[in-house]
């Protein structure tokens, strides 16, 4: 059985819809990973021990086990406790939390690297510790850690492929649907890979632009 890429155009709509879902998953999970990363970082550094230690334990657990396993746990685990989430929601939460843990590590380092004078500057004006953290410290920590966080978002894009295993119709799953009709895995997986590569390049370009824009404000 030779290769025949002429089968691809017929399924282009399906592939494009899959690509849209991949982008959607990346954006939503990326946002969760960023918000969660900030939240976890702030709790890990400033939180009461009653929340700090559970968060640290959760982070340790999520960093030491495979994402795929975590996705199964969230998807089937929530069903077990009576929450039947659509696969998309479960996938996005799983991906988002997984990368939130990694982002939290980076953001913690970023927060610790912000000059002590910044806290003093804020507190002297009468801002509370909380106001100082979220208005002054966290924005600077985020700006200074944009490159590694950007790398994590790119890793998240690639790992979004894993949610296909819980049945979200993103790029990989869309390709599998096409393959089940045509029995041409090579052609469709290559097509999907090209799509990922293109999205990856676009994402990198966007991240670089954001980094450049942030340069002046540091």
């Amino acid at each position: 059985m030779g290769l025949d890429f002429n089968v691809v155009p017929e399924f282009l709509d399906l592939i494009l819809i899959g690509a849209m879902w991949t982008i959607a998953i990346t954006l939503v999970a990326g946002a969760i990973s960023l918000g969660g990363g900030v939240l976890f970082a702030v709790i890990a550094l400033y939180g009461h021990w009653l929340v700090r230690y559970p968060i640290k334990f959760f982070a340790w657990l999520f960093m030491g086990t495979p994402l795929l396993l975590q996705l199964f746990l969230i998807y089937f685990g929530l069903v077990q406790v009576g929450i039947d989430l659509p696969a998309f929601v479960a996938g996005v939460i799983g991906l988002g939390l997984h990368f939130a843990v990694y982002n939290s590590d980076i953001i913690q380092a970023g927060i610790l690297a912000v000059d002590k004078g910044q806290t003093e500057g804020g507190r002297t004006l009468g801002l509370s510790q909380f106001q100082t953290i979220y208005k002054i410290i966290v924005p600077q920590a985020l700006r200074n850690t944009l490159p590694p966080i950007g790398n994590n978002i790119i890793a998240l894009l690639k790992d979004s492929a894993l949610v296909s295993v819980i049945g979200v119709t993103e790029l990989i799953h869309a390709s599998q649907l096409a393959i089940s009709e045509t029995f041409r895995p090579f052609e469709f997986y290559i097509t999907a890979a090209v799509c990922y590569y293109a999205i990856n390049l676009a994402l990198e370009a966007i991240l670089r632009k954001i980094e450049n824009n942030a340069q002046i404000a540091r």
């Binding site: 030779g2 290769l3 790992d159 990989i172 997986y189 890979a193 990922y196 590569y197």
Partner: peptide, 18 residues
């Protein structure tokens, strides 16, 4: 630039075609 999962799929499922 591409997911490891798809690299596996190309190799395993697509490999026989080439």
């Amino acid at each position: 630039g591409t997911p490891a999962l798809i690299q596996l799929f190309i190799l395993y499922y697509g490999g026989s075609q080439v």
